[in-house]
Computed example of a mutant assay.
Amino acid sequence: MNARTEPAEAEAEPPDAIARPPLLREFLLVAGLFLVYKLGRQLATGHTGNAFHNARRVWDLERALHLPHENAVQSALLHGDTLIHLANTYYATVHFPATLAFLVWLYLRRPAHYIWARRVLAVVTTAALVLPFTFPLAPPRMLAGTGLEDTARIYGPSVYGPPSSDHLSNQFAAMPSLHFGWALMVAIGLVVATRSRWRWLWLLHPLITLLVIVGTANHYWLDAIVATAMLGITLAVIHPPRRTATTAGRGTGRLAPREGVLAGAGR
């Protein structure tokens, strides 16, 4: 009797969200993701002439598409030194810590969502590193004739030095904006992984990030649009975990991985 009931009980037991991955392995994977992000942008240095040529093409395309002028956002931020300083500080200090805190929280509280988010970020980041090789792009703060100022250099704080001596980043890799792409993924991930009626407020993070990257003249609108498209394609392929009928009925909130093209990857 017991031998017959054990399999049934095992099947009735909710297929718990994917077990939390080993901490050391995940630390190395996430550290590797950030390292690839930094090193990949450095490897794509050079092509200064093409970067400025592409910048003019992007600027002209935005005007042809009747996108709002980046100047309007920057003018709003320049109404006071405090506001522009806060924008520069947000750009310099929120990007990496917010993404890392997001991954740590998911790892501790939503392991299945963590694996999903880590995969999405890895794919988007890797894909984003290809564009600077094929389409180097100078940011709008470097483009003459736009009326835009390099707010970080003037008002501080600045994370960039002169492009010729900046060995920590590639300043000619404006497209896509991973500042915005990562911020949007953080918001989407938290909206999907939580159930609070206030969870939609997480969308303020990418909204503020968008206004900051444009207002400080570090990115064009199109940089954020391309990042959004890349994230959208990735999310269409790599699906988040879903509730099962068993767990939904019990109200446990446990999740099972959604079957998808890449559901078994990266374990």
Rank of each mutant, 00 (worst) to 15 (best):
W198E: 01
A117W: 09
R153C: 04
P136F: 06
F172A: 08
L148Q: 07
L129Q: 07
P136H: 08
F133D: 08
V186S: 02
L178G: 01
V159Y: 03
R141L: 14
A122Y: 14
S158Y: 03
A128K: 01
A173L: 02
R153W: 14
V130R: 05
V192R: 14
T151C: 15
R141F: 15
A152H: 13
M175C: 11
L137G: 13
A152Y: 10
L201H: 03
A187P: 03
S196N: 14
H113W: 13
W182T: 15
P136I: 06
G161N: 12
V124A: 03
D150M: 11
R141T: 08
N170L: 05
G147I: 03
Y114H: 15
S169R: 11
S158E: 10
M185W: 05
P162W: 12
T134D: 00
A117E: 08
F172C: 06
P132R: 09
G147D: 00
G181C: 06
R119G: 11
V159N: 12
H167Y: 06
T126G: 11
R197A: 12
R153L: 13
V192P: 00
A144Y: 10
L129I: 10
P132W: 07
P136N: 08
A193K: 02
T125H: 02
T126Q: 00
T126P: 00
G156C: 05
W116C: 01
P136G: 10
M185V: 10
H167I: 14
W200C: 04
T194P: 00
A127E: 02
Y155A: 13
P136R: 07
A193F: 00
H113Q: 02
H113K: 03
P132S: 08
V186N: 05
A122V: 11
A117P: 11
W202V: 11
I154L: 14
L178P: 00
A187E: 03
G189M: 01
L168I: 05
A152E: 14
Y155Q: 13
A193R: 01
A152W: 11
A187W: 04
P132C: 07
L203R: 02
T194E: 13
Y114A: 06
A138W: 11
P163D: 09
V120A: 01
M142V: 08
V123E: 00
A144W: 11
H179I: 12
L137S: 10
G145C: 12
M142T: 11
P132D: 03
T151I: 11
R195V: 14
V186G: 00
F135M: 04
V123Q: 01
P132V: 10
S164A: 15
A183T: 07
R141H: 10
F180L: 05
L178V: 02
H113L: 03
R195D: 14
